[in-house]
């Protein structure tokens, strides 16, 4: 890793130059009182002071609706056609989540529909300037460090400029678009301090280690009353899944085009909290749903985030972004609240 410095004025020129280049840039922009990742077309739209976005940036690598194949009378064709792009301003909890998805989509049977998009993406992180109301990233999976991103921008206090950490060739490739100098030891120390300090400022926190949580949560599997109570207000709407940066379940459907001959096979984000997720048809109009109650589904989600995938990922499959907590209308999805409650049993 090497660290560079760029002044505030030159940073604007740098971003403008990136916008003018051929590669598309996706970055945090405002949407009313919230933020979303969107195509960046002007420097003024860039909001590195965002707290959290409604959907995580995974949408550019694992799109909510992704064509897998087209088919017609002649045959079928893959729709893999990755777009070279830069994902700019990603907070470290989302970097962690993308790292997890990278592993999950590559493991066992590597999924080219994800990996080709991923390979075409340059990911540049940014420090957290503003903390969202439901964040608990400071205390979840503390030993898990993200990998796989290309660069990281830290805005120095006082507004003199930014430190740019370069991790890969893709990250270094951006250097030529801006007036960077080598960062001084003091600037590097200041940038590290900024990232350290913010970790302690989350409004919510988990009170136990990932290991303690994994074991304890797993042991409550049969506590029917507990799960029913936690899920009582659940609408089974799947909002918590949909906004989650580490959820990656999907459904696959085929549809014909209007000519009724050609068509498309596509995958869409799915949600294990919805009623029909685990339903199977047995024929003759009979169905079986192996997670029929909302309590079972709620339990599945919490287990999946805190224990099921821990061995595979080396830590919990939750990064503490708090998106699910704020997306949940019934306000029951908050993993920190649910887990802390379970830990007190």
């Amino acid at each position: 890793m090497s660290s560079y410095f760029i002044t505030r004025a030159n940073f604007e020129k740098f971003i403008v130059k990136l916008i003018q280049a051929k590669k598309k840039i996706y970055a945090p922009v405002s949407k009313k009182q919230s933020f979303i990742f969107d195509e960046l077309t002007s420097f003024d739209d860039l909001r590195l002071d965002y707290d959290v976005t409604i959907l995580p940036p995974k949408k550019y690598i694992f799109p909510p609706r992704q064509g897998l194949l087209t088919f017609d009378k002649q045959g079928h064709n893959s729709l893999i056609a990755p777009e070279d792009k830069i994902l700019l301003g990603v907070h470290f909890y989302d970097l962690k989540a993308i790292d997890m998805l990278d592993n999950l989509f590559a493991a066992n049977n590597s999924d080219a529909n994800y990996l080709a998009n991923r390979a075409a993406t340059t990911i540049i992180g940014a420090n957290i300037q503003k903390i969202s109301k439901r964040a608990f990233w400071g205390s979840v999976g503390k030993d898990v460090r993200p990998h796989g991103y290309d660069g990281f921008i830290i805005k120095l206090d006082g507004g003199e400029g930014y430190v740019y950490e370069c991790y890969t060739d893709k990250g270094s490739a951006l250097l030529k678009s801006g007036d960077f100098s080598n960062a001084s030891p003091a600037q590097i120390a200041a940038s590290m301090d900024i990232n350290e300090r913010v970790l302690k400022q989350c409004p919510e926190k988990l009170n136990h280690s990932s290991k303690e949580i994994a074991t304890k949560v797993r042991s409550t599997f049969k506590e029917k009353q507990l799960w029913e109570e936690l899920a009582d207000d659940c609408f089974s709407c799947g909002s918590c899944n949909t906004v989650c940066p580490t959820c990656y379940c999907f459904d696959v459907q085929d549809n014909w085009n209007v000519d009724q001959v050609s068509g498309r096979r596509e995958r869409t984000w799915d949600a294990c909290m919805t009623e029909d997720f685990a339903k199977i048809s047995l024929g003759g109009g009979h169905e079986e749903n192996f997670r029929e109650s909302k309590a079972q589904r709620f339990r599945h989600r919490i287990m999946r985030k805190s224990t099921y995938l821990n061995e595979t990922l080396g830590g919990p499959a939750c990064v503490g972004c708090g998106r699910c907590s704020s997306a949940c209308t019934a306000d029951i999805a908050d993993p920190a609240k649910a887990i802390n409650r379970i830990m007190e049993l």
Binding site: L104, N108, Y248, D270, A278, H300
Partner: peptide, 15 residues
């Protein structure tokens, strides 16, 4: 036999 969908350990339906 479960509700497998993708068959390759990704989609989550047969978990």
């Amino acid at each position: 036999e479960r509700r497998m969908k993708c068959g390759v350990g990704k989609c989550g339906h047969c978990q």
